[in-house]
Design a protein around this nucleic acid. Sequence first.
DNA 1: CTTAAACTGTCGCCATATTGACAATTTAGA
DNA 2: TCTAAATTGTCAATATGGCGACAGTTTAAG
Lengths: 230, 230
Amino acid sequence: MQSDEIRQILSKNAWFASLSESLTDKLLGKGKLRVLCNQQILHQKNDSANGFYCVVSGRIRVSNYTVQGKELVLTWIQPGNWFGEISLIDGLPRTHDAHAEDTTTILKVPKSAFEQLFIEHQDWSQHIMRLLCQRVRSTFSLIDETGCLSLKGQICKRLSLMQQGLQEQNKYTKSFEIKISQDALAQLIHSSRQTVNKILQDLQSDNVIALRYGKIVILNRSVLQELGQI
Amino acid sequence: MQSDEIRQILSKNAWFASLSESLTDKLLGKGKLRVLCNQQILHQKNDSANGFYCVVSGRIRVSNYTVQGKELVLTWIQPGNWFGEISLIDGLPRTHDAHAEDTTTILKVPKSAFEQLFIEHQDWSQHIMRLLCQRVRSTFSLIDETGCLSLKGQICKRLSLMQQGLQEQNKYTKSFEIKISQDALAQLIHSSRQTVNKILQDLQSDNVIALRYGKIVILNRSVLQELGQI
DNA sequence: CTTAAACTGTCGCCATATTGACAATTTAGA
DNA sequence: TCTAAATTGTCAATATGGCGACAGTTTAAG
């Protein structure tokens, strides 16, 4: 993959785009590309941390496991998004497992380079603080969703956000198709496949979405967004 | 309230205790005490932010509201804990409502003084990053709890944490009594008073806790902690 | 082309939690 | 001391969603 190709993907991300040129040069210079195959483990909960990551292509599934062994998916990280900074800053172990969903390319900035940036660039800590604030706010949103919304609302909100995420990556051609199984969607909202199926079919009969094998097609974005508040 | 008295209360908090003397002097010097009466509003969701706070006595209830008007309590902030930094850093509005539970004294560090610290103390940003990491990790824990634990488990975990919090404040005399109504506890775990009552009585008949009017007495801490993992 | 694996659609049963209602108890304040 | 408000205890009715089961469909891989 070409360096400008990577830079173009990463620039779609608002946080990365706000960095100075010297910072982005350094991040890309120190970062190494790594390809993970489907379901490969990037790191596990309680691992000690040695890198700051950005998804370049594919996606990363972030999750925890119950004592009974059931996987609880926190989120999917889409291309352009950076993660893994928490453990690098406070020195404590990883909070979640991170698996590759599909074949996935990531950029890895080693711990040493990450720490070096605080010394070489005075504004790096400001940017990291902003990234942390984003992390807190999006986690608060998650809590609000599970507490405030019905399952139908949660599904609609998730689909909305995914569609929006894809659109930001300029995947215009297929921006109305979300590649996700009903099973995976159920894991994202901590529900069951059967319940999700029932809700999705309701949405289908209202012409908000269309169901395909392993995919969901968005037919009516605005209604979906409205329903994401119930 | 005396200045050393305040300093003593705040020093029980690990984050504050890790600050350099010059930083703590500055925080206390620039901070102003403010007394809120029971149920008084400190700030509301979407307010613009003008202060960084620490609870000195009493407690602050942090919550959001559903569209139906039901209050969803995120957490109670106990004495010694700092909060409100997110909006000061990213400049965006408050994420939650903050109400006083009981008569409550807070220390307020104005926005200008908070920002000044980044300039006057090179290590301030490091400390703020650590505080943000704590915030993210405790929020992740909350998500894990609601996703992984049964209601009984959630109740036990909350009681455990509250008891621990009180103990750290050296309130030895009453460290086994938690002042909270069953209604309020239900709001903390997003459940109903009736269900909470049923679970609490189970715990009472197992001699783990004792129920009083508006209070819960912890009889067996270790069992409570164990149950907080189911 | 064939076959296995992954995914979807649908049922019914069951466990769990919500809600409304009402009585009893405890506390705080006039 | 008396009264109103807050809190607790309890029950029945109802709703919600999880889970097992199984058939049908689509896809991918050899």
